[in-house]
Design a protein around this nucleic acid. Structure first.
Length: 483
DNA sequence: TGAAATGTTGGGGCG
DNA sequence: ACGCCCCAACATTTC
C-alpha cells in the first residue's frame, strides 16, 4: 500500500459517488477527508439559517458514509488556508484535492489557496463535480458568454464531449495511521442548527444527504416523465424533482441525473418530458455560466439601466410578504410553504417574486436576500438568475411589463385550490370559486367559511389593477431616464 | 416561463 | 331572405 497521504477538502460535494476529488485521492493512497466551516470567506453571502440546517444534516450523513468505508470526516472551523496548512503538518499529507465552486468570493479564495499550497510544495488538484459543463467551456460564435437561454441550450445540447459518465463510489477508503486521533470538532460545535427548533416540518419533508438524494431521484423517475412538461407547473401536485437542495450541496451529481434521464447521453436524442427536464438542469448551468462571467449580478442588475429603477421603501409591506400576509392567497401560500419547508414550488416562486417587485415595487435584492435566508436550496447562481429574470433586469429576462396576476395564476395552476388550502388553512372552507379572490366572495359565503377579511385573513394589501398601473408607470420613468 | 385591450370572425336571434 | 346586432371564441396588439 502506498504511503502517499492526500487531503480531500469537502465543500459543496457532500457525496461519495461521482466525486472526482475523492476518487483521485483514493487512487493515490491514503485519504484524510475534511470539511472546514469558514462562513466569513463567503463574502456577503454567508449561508442562511435554512441552508445551515441542511448542511448539518448532510455532514452527518457524509460522516456516516465515510465511517462505513473505514474512514472519518474531520471537521474544522476557521480560515481555509491556515486550516489546510495545519492539517498538512498534522498528517504529513503531500497532496490536497477538492471539487470546484463558482461563487465570486470562493473563486478568488480558492485561487489563493491553490497558489499558496503549491508554493508550500504540495500537489494540488481541483475538479468539476457540480456542473455538466464548465462556465468557460460554453461560448457563442463570437467567443463570448451567452446572455440568452435558448442559444445557450442549443450550444449545450450539441456540446462535445458529452458530460462524463458518473464515477463509482470508492469501495474502500484507506485511512492514514492516526486518522482517528486527529483533532476534529464535533458536528454540534459548528453550531449550524437553530437554537430554537423551527425545523420540524423540514425534518418530515426532507432527507438530506446522498441516500436521500438518490431516493428523491428514483421517486421522480418512477413517475411518468412524459407528464413532467405540464405537471411541473402544478404546485398542488408532486410534479417536480425536488432535487434542488441535494444538487446545491452536491449530494447528487448532475452527471448522474443527466445519464439517468438520457441514457444515450446525447440531449439531441430525447424529446417530451425528458427534454424539458434536461432543459431545467441546463437552466442551472446557465445560472452558473452567468454568475461566473458577470459576478457583480449577485447585487447589481445585469442590465445597468435598471440601477435607476424607482423602487419603494416599505418595511411593513416587505414584512407582510415575508410572512405570507399579503391578502393574495396564492402569494401567501407560497411564502408560508417557504417558511415551513425551506422550499417553494418554482411556479409559485415566480408568482411571489413578481408580486414583490411589481405589485409592491420593492427591490428584487430584498427578495433575493429573504430567499437566501429561508431556502434550503439557496444557491447564489440560481437565486440571482431567478430574481433578475423576474425583475426584468437580467439575462433573457421577462419583459418588465410581464406582470403575473396572482388570481389568474392561482386559478390556472391550482385549479381545485388544494395548494392554497394546504398552506393557508384559514381559507380552507371557502368554495373554490372564491378561494383565489376571497374579497369577491359574498358576505354570507365568507361567514359560512369562517372567514372575516381583515381579521382571520388580511384584505389585499394592494389592489391588483392599481398596482399593475403603478408598475407600468415606474417602467415608463425608467425608459425615459435611459434615453 | 403574461395579462389586458383591441380586433376579427362567425353563428344565431330577431325585426 | 336579409340586414343588423350581440357575443363568444379566437387572434393580434399593446403594455
Amino acid at each position: 500500500m502506498s504511503q502517499l497521504i492526500s487531503i480531500v477538502w469537502f465543500r459543496q460535494d457532500l457525496r461519495l459517488t461521482d466525486n472526482p476529488a475523492l476518487s483521485a485521492a483514493a487512487a493515490q493512497g491514503r485519504v484524510v477527508p475534511v470539511f472546514i466551516w469558514s462562513p466569513e470567506e463567503e463574502g456577503a453571502w454567508t449561508p442562511g439559517s435554512a441552508s445551515r440546517w441542511w448542511l448539518h444534516q448532510s455532514l452527518r450523513s457524509l460522516a456516516e458514509s465515510l465511517a462505513r468505508l473505514g474512514s472519518r470526516l474531520v471537521l474544522r472551523r476557521g480560515s481555509a488556508l491556515p486550516t489546510l496548512l495545519e492539517l498538512v503538518r498534522q498528517t504529513g499529507a503531500q497532496a490536497v484535492y477538492w471539487n470546484r465552486r463558482y461563487e465570486p468570493a470562493i473563486v478568488q479564495r480558492d485561487a489563493t489557496v491553490k497558489e499558496q499550497l503549491r508554493a508550500a510544495g504540495l500537489h494540488v488538484e481541483s475538479y468539476n463535480a457540480s456542473l455538466l459543463f464548465e462556465p468557460w467551456q460554453i461560448r457563442n460564435k463570437q467567443d463570448r458568454p451567452f446572455q440568452v437561454y435558448t442559444p445557450f441550450w442549443n450550444a449545450c445540447r450539441s456540446f462535445a464531449p458529452l458530460p462524463d459518465k458518473p464515477l463509482p463510489a470508492p469501495l474502500r477508503l484507506p485511512a492514514p495511521d492516526g486518522l482517528n486521533d486527529l483533532p476534529s470538532l464535533s458536528l454540534d460545535a459548528l453550531q449550524l442548527e437553530p437554537t430554537i427548533d423551527w425545523a420540524a416540518a423540514m425534518r418530515r419533508y426532507w432527507q438530506p444527504g446522498e441516500e436521500g438524494a438518490t431516493r428523491r431521484l428514483e421517486a421522480f423517475l418512477a413517475q411518468p416523465i412524459d407528464a413532467y412538461d405540464t405537471a411541473r407547473d402544478r404546485p398542488d401536485l408532486d410534479g417536480t424533482s425536488s432535487l434542488s437542495p441535494h444538487l446545491h450541496f452536491g449530494e447528487i451529481s448532475p452527471r448522474t441525473i443527466w445519464h439517468r434521464i438520457c441514457p444515450v447521453g446525447r440531449a439531441t436524442e430525447v424529446r417530451g418530458g425528458r427534454e424539458v427536464y434536461l432543459k431545467e438542469l441546463v437552466w442551472r448551468e446557465f445560472a452558473y455560466h452567468l454568475l461566473y462571467h458577470f459576478p457583480h449580478t449577485t447585487d447589481q442588475p445585469l442590465r445597468s439601466e435598471y440601477a435607476a429603477f424607482p423602487y419603494r421603501t416599505d418595511p411593513a409591506g416587505l414584512r407582510a410578504w415575508q410572512r405570507g400576509q399579503t391578502g393574495y392567497p396564492m402569494v401567501d401560500a407560497g411564502m408560508r410553504q417557504l417558511w415551513q419547508l425551506g422550499w417553494m414550488h418554482n411556479r409559485v416562486r415566480m408568482i411571489v417574486a413578481s408580486f414583490l417587485v411589481k405589485h409592491q415595487l420593492l427591490p428584487w435584492q430584498a427578495g433575493a436576500r429573504w430567499f437566501w435566508d429561508t431556502l434550503v436550496d439557496a444557491d447564489l447562481a440560481s437565486n440571482t438568475l431567478g430574481w433578475q429574470w423576474v425583475a426584468g433586469c437580467g439575462a433573457d429576462a421577462a419583459p418588465y411589463f410581464r406582470i403575473f396576476n396572482p388570481v389568474s395564476q392561482g386559478e390556472k395552476f391550482d385549479p381545485q385550490g388544494d395548494y392554497v388550502r394546504r398552506w393557508v388553512p384559514e381559507l380552507a372552507r371557502l368554495p373554490t370559486k372564491y378561494l383565489h379572490k376571497p374579497w369577491e366572495a359574498p358576505a354570507c359565503v365568507l361567514s359560512d367559511a369562517g372567514v372575516r377579511l381583515g381579521e382571520t385573513y388580511p384584505a389585499p394589501i394592494v389592489d391588483h389593477a392599481t398596482a399593475r398601473e403603478r408598475a407600468l408607470a415606474a417602467l415608463a420613468t425608467l425608459s425615459k431616464s435611459a434615453t
